[in-house]
Amino acid sequence: MRHGLENNGVIQDVFLSPVPGGFCLHANGREALIVLEGETQGYLALAIDGEDCEVRYAIAGAEIFLHLDGRHFHFKHHEPVRRFASTETGETNAAARAPMPGTVVRIAAQAGAAVAAGDAILVIESMKLETTIRAWRDGIVEAVHVTEGATFERGMLLVSLVEDA
């Protein structure tokens, strides 16, 4: 299964397999022989299908920036598992349910509020531990189904999100 390298909205599948003396690149339905001739921090000296290639690169999180053949390139790296996970999973991801019985400590985002993935929506307390329920994706808070101070059972609906239209 291949890693994804995304550039300008197009995701290329790439994979390396070892061959005597180097690696074989599997990409774009083709193969190319890569020989590593030298490397230091942020620098690679390669021979790709026999042609020399000097590369400067920098990686920040999932972004990889490259300079070779006098040009700059930028890819977003999609590593295999996350790449194939779906972001639109429909109704099953529309709501958050209480993981265990507890009390609502504080509501941080009201119905109608726009939230970004990771924003706090409400804080619950159970067994002397506070947990923050955060937005699992960008969207609008459709409804908060509990009020501050309310107690709830496990599995009860806490908050639902809709996609930003």
């Binding site: 299964m1 194939f84 996970a85």
Partner: peptide
């Protein structure tokens, strides 16, 4: 998937689609 990965514990990993499942298997 939800029943077995969240409730019964018979399933270990829920996957959104087949490629996702295969990627998890490889991992």
């Amino acid at each position: 998937a939800d029943v077995h990965t969240r409730i019964s514990g018979t399933g270990d990993y829920p996957a959104d689609n087949e490629m996702h499942a295969i990627a998890i298997a490889r991992e």
